[in-house]
């Protein structure tokens, strides 16, 4: 379980953070905002997943970026700044190239954010958050997570038992294999139903079905979480104010027009950078602090 740094904060904070950066990443097309988001996402993903993240970004994300950037101008011919004409007579415009780069950038930013999300938001955090909204759902999810690996293991065992009497899916001709597979599924179903009765007994015997069921979790919203939340929310508000004032937008067609850089917009950029980099900053601060403590030990 990943419980270091940002992942160690309350699931609500993790969730709000990722919702914010994902939404912002999708809607802000201003180049500075996009670069901020992309760089932060890459930094965080490298921090979380190390060498594997670098490989992922170079091997999949970079080609995807280039492909998407080239694809758009090949099909989209809007825009006023014509660079040259294709053999088919269609124009290649500066606007469509820029738009291609921008949307490709957005795509991979969102993908990288999702890879971070997956590393941080483990199943039990997700269950916890949505269990708050619908308590029955959290139990069902938890039970599903219990039963899926159990059934998988059981199918493997049944398949081995059947193999030893020559009736596994890997034995015989196609028809027999299909038949053996169905037999295994049928055994599995009988087994599952039979054993579910006992599990139901175990639940009943521990009072399942009583009214006013509560939902326990290991997570607590402590002071550290509250502090982090306050900073995060204020940064989000600043960024949203910027958005409302049109500081984060950009127009591509018919001609490129970016919101102007003003002192106010610089404030917005700084807030956005701060927001996106929060986990990285938090991690670095913790690392520096740890070093200084360790040096005194």
């Amino acid at each position: 379980m990943n419980r270091n740094g940002f992942a160690g904060y309350h699931p609500l904070i993790n969730f709000v953070y990722f919702t914010a950066v994902l939404l912002f990443g999708m809607f802000f097309v201003h180049p500075i905002m996009q670069v901020i988001s992309l760089v932060s996402a890459s930094c965080y993903s490298i921090m979380l997943r190390g060498r594997r993240a670098v490989r992922f970004q170079l091997l999949y994300m970079l080609p995807l970026l280039l492909a998407a950037a080239l694809f758009n101008p090949a099909f989209n011919h809007a825009g006023v700044t014509i660079l040259f004409y294709l053999k088919s007579g269609n124009p290649i415009t500066l606007e469509s190239i820029l738009y291609g780069i921008s949307s490709a950038c957005m795509l991979i930013t969102v993908l990288i954010w999702f890879s971070c999300y997956n590393a941080v938001m483990t199943s039990d955090k997700f269950i916890y958050l949505f269990g708050k909204l619908i308590p029955a759902l959290s139990l069902i999810l938890s039970m599903v997570l219990r039963f899926v690996p159990r059934y998988k293991d059981q199918i493997r065992r049944i398949s081995y038992a059947q193999r030893s009497i020559g009736k596994d899916v890997s034995q015989g001709n196609l028809l027999r294999r299909a038949r053996n597979g169905l037999t295994i599924l049928s055994i599995m179903t009988t087994w599952a139903l039979e054993n579910a009765i006992e599990t139901a007994d175990s639940m009943k015997s521990r009072g399942y079905g009583l009214p006013r069921r509560t939902s326990y979790s290991l997570y607590r919203l402590d002071n550290r979480d509250k502090g982090f939340m306050a900073v995060m929310l204020s940064l989000i508000i600043i960024v949203v104010i910027g958005e409302v004032n049109g500081e984060n937008t950009m127009r591509f067609f018919p001609s490129v027009q970016t919101a102007e850089v003003t002192p106010f917009s610089i404030l917005i950029y700084a807030a956005y950078l701060g927001l996106c980099m929060m986990p990285v900053i938090q991690h670095m601060m913790e690392a520096i602090k740890w070093k200084s403590i360790a040096s005194k030990m």
């Binding site: 199943s123 997570l145 054993n195 006992e198 015997s205 521990r206 079905g209 009214p211 326990y216 290991l218």
Partner: peptide
């Protein structure tokens, strides 16, 4: 009255040890 069944696997309902420990207490509210 507590009751423990024969097959250890069938008695367990949830996916995490801590959640299993809390299961009955959650039911009691």
């Amino acid at each position: 009255i507590g009751f423990v069944l024969q097959n250890p696997d069938n008695g367990i309902v949830t996916d995490k040890v801590w959640h299993e420990l809390a299961f009955g207490l959650e039911s009691l509210g």
